[in-house]
Design a protein around this nucleic acid. Structure first.
Lengths: 343, 343
DNA sequence: CGCTATCATGTTAGCGCTAACATAGTTTTA
DNA sequence: TAAAACTATGTTAGCGCTAACATGATAGCG
């Protein structure tokens, strides 16, 4: 029970060298190696070169877990999206990833499948990873989630939509987008317009667009019928949507779809059925995905700056992380009506 | 310099309670709280309930970084793909994510943009996070990357293609897929067939398919011209591809595209140009994306079981992590020729 | 030439958690 | 009924790294 009581009872998964071993091999202290790697300017050039050579020689890979624990911060950014099936989120993620990776941050990606409870679970887990910031899609969260986040002191970025955000906000006004398309359809003299969406309780931004749409139609003294599909945005669902409109509202002359996937699915189905667009029926979408611009007739839609939204969101978060500089909290990335030949 | 020399000099970002605080509040030791959370069956039911109630009451969120350091393993799975722009990888990721998340693993997603050096960098970083396993797309890696990985003792899964893998392998035979489609085109009596791909040096699986294709055409005594685009799979690139074929090989009667995006882009462009498919020109793709099945004529393509591939890969990795059970190392998920109306 | 300022590096003490061993209480077994 | 086996919980010692402070060397200054 003397000094002999050494501590050999330790695991050690692989035989990865540690910082200390690099330090010993280089003839410096551990902290110098740490600094040579993480804050090179704080180390004399000659020492730095010697240390980095040793790092190379031993094949040292820093244990980021240990580093994060010691410094109480990781270079993780939690990113939470409601779906991976939708190209929109992929592009936003892409914009985020590019920008964050350039600064050495790693994205932790979570997918809620449009389930607000799942968001809470994911956020809990992510907080446990000492993320440097959180980027999440949307402004609606569960109560538990809100209270968790209000006690959190790192940047929180809510993207996609605009409104009363917890912290930072980059997005666009979905009500206004819905109004915009409805006005366009009315201006084109369509009077019998159906809105078709999918799972609007979960994809509530699509519902917001519907509300804008309905407002405009009501203001013009028109009905605003709506059909809700139970399969989230897909070409298949769009085809189903078209058929349902045709059987339920046969006199319809325009369909306003909640997104481009649905709209394109409907457009392709209509063509397969031998219908003329926009002669027999006009079709409009939302998102401005490339697909809609490749079909003939080109789809009338609303383009949202998706990758840009990701990039801007990342930049704003980075600004905050850098200097805690006070930045504008809300950024409206806007949208653009893209008039194709389908309306 | 007596006992007074207490350690108050510690940061502590947010006022998150620690395991110890939960333990104190619940009147047990820290390890009991740890067990109540991570191995509930090792704690008496009454104690467990008491502890979990305290956890709830204090809003305790486990510090996963500390846990990972102490246990030398994180519940991270590194996943590396060459692109997010391609729906194929999204679907594989989806399959992986679903399966891994169910078992409480978190995916660390890396995107190489088809750059093999970038893969090495990403893997280095990911190893630093003590990932439990690595899933990467493809069998080709840089030398540095190979040597890094051969010294790593956790499961490595290479997906998408089949062959001489480092460890586990789930994929399909791209040479054979190329051959399969070429045989189909020959069987349909097309004799002047061009292969169109994009960035085949980076997307080398597309090149493998081309090689299979060429093999079959040569065996039939035919030329196998190829056009390489410099923009990765997109509808736009496909349209360009079509135009380039028409101008360079005007007598072509079938185009074998490296993937469905290209093929569909070409098909839609052909239609816009007023061409008949397959009358004027036949078009074939690869992947079996839904899009290709919604256009008219339906695209002839090869369906790969994408989500399945992700799911199977994840399951095999999990088996390994669970029990180190010896599993089959190589799984051929196969593919299926989907004869549409475009050939 | 003593004083402070700056630079380069080192020492110490944890970050919050869990593995491994230790201990006490309870049940089983021969 | 004592030893063995199991159950429930605790104690101890780090995991590998970095923050904060400490130290020593050199430079700058009037």
């Amino acid at each position: 029970m003397s000094d002999k009581r050494r501590s050999t009872r330790r695991r050690r998964g692989s035989e990865q060298p540690t910082l200390q071993q690099v330090a010993d091999a280089a003839g410096v202290s551990a902290i110098t190696v740490s600094r040579a790697l993480n804050a090179p300017e704080r180390v004399n050039a000659a020492t730095r070169i010697k240390v980095l050579a040793t790092v190379e020689r031993l094949g040292y890979v820093p244990n980021l877990v240990a580093g994060s624990l010691a410094s109480a911060r990781s270079r993780f950014i939690a990113v939470i999206v409601p779906s991976l099936a939708n190209a929109v989120f992929i592009e936003v993620i892409h914009g985020l990833q590019e920008t964050f990776e350039r600064e050495g941050y790693q994205i932790l990606l979570g997918n809620t499948d449009y389930d607000i409870e799942r968001e809470y679970q994911l956020i809990r887990t992510f907080l446990g990873w000492s993320c440097s910031a959180l980027v999440t899609a949307g402004l609606r969260h569960s109560e538990a989630c809100r209270s968790l986040l209000t006690h959190w002191d790192k940047p929180i970025m809510e993207v996609m939509e605009l409104g009363d955000a917890l912290d930072l906000n980059v997005g666009l006004d979905h009500h206004e987008a819905g109004r915009c398309m409805a006005r366009h359809l009315l201006a084109q003299q369509y009077r019998s317009v159906v809105y078709v969406g999918a799972c609007l309780d979960r994809d509530y931004r699509a519902r917001m667009r519907f509300e804008g749409h309905r407002e405009v139609l009501h203001a013009a003294g028109l009905e605003a019928p709506m059909i809700e599909l139970d399969q989230l945005g897909s070409l298949d669902a769009g085809a189903t949507g078209l058929e349902r409109v045709l059987s339920r509202y046969p006199s319809t002359n325009a369909i306003h779809f909640a997104n481009d996937d649905l709209a394109t699915g409907a457009l392709l189905r209509a063509q397969r059925l031998g219908m003329t667009i926009p002669g027999d029926i006009a079709i409009a979408g939302f998102n401005g995905l490339p697909l809609g611009q490749h079909v003939t007739p080109r789809l009338t839609t609303i383009r949202s700056p998706r990758e840009n939204m990701g990039r801007l969101a990342a930049e704003e978060v980075l600004k905050r992380l850098d200097a805690k500089r006070v930045t504008r909290r809300r950024h409206d990335v806007g949208f653009e009506l893209l008039v194709g030949d389908s309306t």
